[in-house]
Nucleic acid binder design. Sequence first.
DNA 1: ATTGGGAAGTCCATATAGTGGACCATATAA
DNA 2: TTATATGGTCCACTATATGGACTTCCCAAT
Lengths: 270, 270
Amino acid sequence: MKRTRTIKADVTEATGGGTQSIERALGLLLDVGRADQHGARLTDLVTSSGLAKPTARRALGALVRAGLLDQDETSRRYHLGAESYVLGMLAAPRFGIHARAIDGLTRLSQATGDTAFLSVRRDLHIVCLHREEGPFPIRSHVLQAGDRHPLGIGAGSLAVLAALPDDEVDRVIAANTGIIQEKYPAYSPASLRSAVMRTRKEGYALNPGLLMKGSWGIGVAVCDPQGRPVYAVSLAAIEDRLDETRRRELIPMLKLEAEKLERLLRDAPT
Amino acid sequence: MKRTRTIKADVTEATGGGTQSIERALGLLLDVGRADQHGARLTDLVTSSGLAKPTARRALGALVRAGLLDQDETSRRYHLGAESYVLGMLAAPRFGIHARAIDGLTRLSQATGDTAFLSVRRDLHIVCLHREEGPFPIRSHVLQAGDRHPLGIGAGSLAVLAALPDDEVDRVIAANTGIIQEKYPAYSPASLRSAVMRTRKEGYALNPGLLMKGSWGIGVAVCDPQGRPVYAVSLAAIEDRLDETRRRELIPMLKLEAEKLERLLRDAPT
DNA sequence: ATTGGGAAGTCCATATAGTGGACCATATAA
DNA sequence: TTATATGGTCCACTATATGGACTTCCCAAT
């Protein structure tokens, strides 16, 4: 007897089986990416991934053989490899706003003195793509290129979350609740929801030092031609430099740069 | 009875077992990377990889879920995803010569009118990282960013091969013999060896239309501080524009840019 | 020297996780 | 309508990845 197909092949979803080792390996690849700068050690990767050591090492070996990772011969640390770089260059035309966004970030950081960021949305998270420091001597290093946080955590991230439709805001918060409770004690699903409201009302996102006391941030979302938020432009500074008065000066500048990026997204084909 | 360990743990090598699915998946990832621009279709990936369709699809699914690939909802083609781009950006500081090399390529292409290339060595192959077109209206499109050829095939590639020590030249040619016989009818191991000699004698590599009749190229290698060739700078033009006389003008310009890059490699830390 | 601890790397019996032949669904062409 | 080509899926079977336990290496402290 034939099984009745209840959902008659909606789209493709629910595949997902039979890919354990691949997903583990890709997880390791992204982990190493996050740890670049100094490289990742086998033991750390083992603990952070929860894999058994032989398993992790075999996967890392495959990644190294593929050229996506390099292993330092003496320190034995894993770094991103040339193939990762090449891949990124090949992907660049499809995400090419980055290159042209750097100008804007530089303008912002020079004009304000503070540090400007470009972040990109990755489903439930946001990833910091670029950090451009301004001349002001006290600089927050809370957000680095490559850092990843749940949507809503941090100024740019909150700007993106608030720009999503309500049902997706709920979905995202629900999906991230576990991580938030575990790693972001200053946040809660409820506080996120009210932050979203505030962001929509004010027209910009504010992070009043919730990730690190004293390190404040403001951010706005950049939407694609379909109106979905994909990037965020944000600024970080110490609390004193982001009081209400100064924010009123800075927000128009942020919005201006965000609009320029939206125009680029509209014009760029691909 | 204990098995005697003949090679007492020289370095780590010969691991390699227990990674089939990972290597298959990574192969697919790189395949898609090569096919970007237009995206890769499932069927093509199946044939190019030799995998069974369900296997390929499962692996691609995992890559999509990890964000390394995107699948176009309507065309069903696979493209590089945001995570690939992020990875590349994170790897950029370690391979950052690229960004600073573009200036040099632009200078070259403007000064000569022809198309300038930056390529990077990946073990037995060379990968074209960047292509900068000059104003001259007849332009060869034989080499594109992302294209990969065995070492020795093409001008930049030959420059790198010729800059390797003899034993490695032999190793590379031996390892590539199969691919060369299969896909590059104008080449042979013997012709490669004599091309290497010619390159060393003349001080630059010449490709007299061996990949595509009429499309000539000249190239020089860029070596890291240890003297190992890692990049190549090259120029492509139609045969008429690369006669002996003009080559004598162009080669010093290429060498100048190559030396600038070597200086960057020396000064840049990591 | 000697010891100890931490990290990298390795082995192999086990069963879990991936495989692929066969099939279905949908889209465009004839 | 049939033909053909492509994307997507099922599931029995076994090839394949797994991980506990082990060895080797390195360095710092005794």
